[in-house]
Amino acid sequence: MSNRHIGAKLFLLALVCYFLVPVWWLLVASTKNAEGLFSGSGALWFNGFHLVDNLRDLFTFNNGEYLRWLGNSVLYALTGGIGSTVISVLAGYGFAKYRFRGRNLTFALVLGAVMVPLTALVIPTFVMMSNAGLTDTVWAVILPSLLSPFGVYLMRVYTSASVPDELLDAARIDGAGELRTFLRVALPLMRPAVITVLLLSVVATWNNYFLPLTMLSDSKLYPLTVGIGLWSQLASSNNGGGQSLWSLIITGSLVSIVPLVFAFLTLQKYWQGGLAVGSLK
């Protein structure tokens, strides 16, 4: 039995190595100082331990620019992520559990929207925001992030499959209003999908680059993605002089992937079930 699986296990190990190499390199590189980084020996193994120095440099560089970007990323990801999740949960429940005129047409529109490439909307949205005087404010990043047609789709499919109509009717017969029925009866049953949609939309906002790059020109409002992109542009434009900036970029990249990796590891029980829904119909 175990012999039969030896090949499969070696294959898995090879896959894990491939997927981990960049992260491993990042981890190793963030413990090196600029000298060790460019010494040209053993890029994949440790050479001195300067992680603490690097972290101190990272958080104090340019008046703590990095910390500000980190705070902005958290702000955008939480408001955009939670906002779009609330909207998707309400809409998904509405589509799944109420029958009203125009429902199918409206839902067809939502599905059509899943197919619209959202970056195609960024430039006209920028012009609209600019006319409204909202570019270069946090709203320019947060408000467009509230749109998540896929979240609505996922919530509808999950709700149809896992919240029985009979249960809702029973709650209504017991005298519960529509809102109370939703909050007390349906919502607890929708929890795995809610957590999945929340994670997906937090990740989407945290990782977004095109939207904030377009909307923001004040570097005080940048999220991490745009900020680190700016650093890397600076570092490659002045070769040599950019050496110390490279080790900031490396340490900064490591710090900025930690929160999401942690969230995925601790919440895996939920999203592994929730992600399945979209493919299961």
């Binding site: 997927f19 981990l20 960049p22 992260v23 990740v203 945290w206 990782n207 680059y209 991490l224 993605t225 680190i228 992109g229 990249s253 900025s256 992937i257 999401l260 990796v261 969230a263 995925f264």
Partner: peptide, 10 residues
């Protein structure tokens, strides 16, 4: 699955 949690930029 881990790379999914890493921003495309990074």
């Amino acid at each position: 699955f881990l790379p999914y949690a890493v921003p495309a930029v990074l």
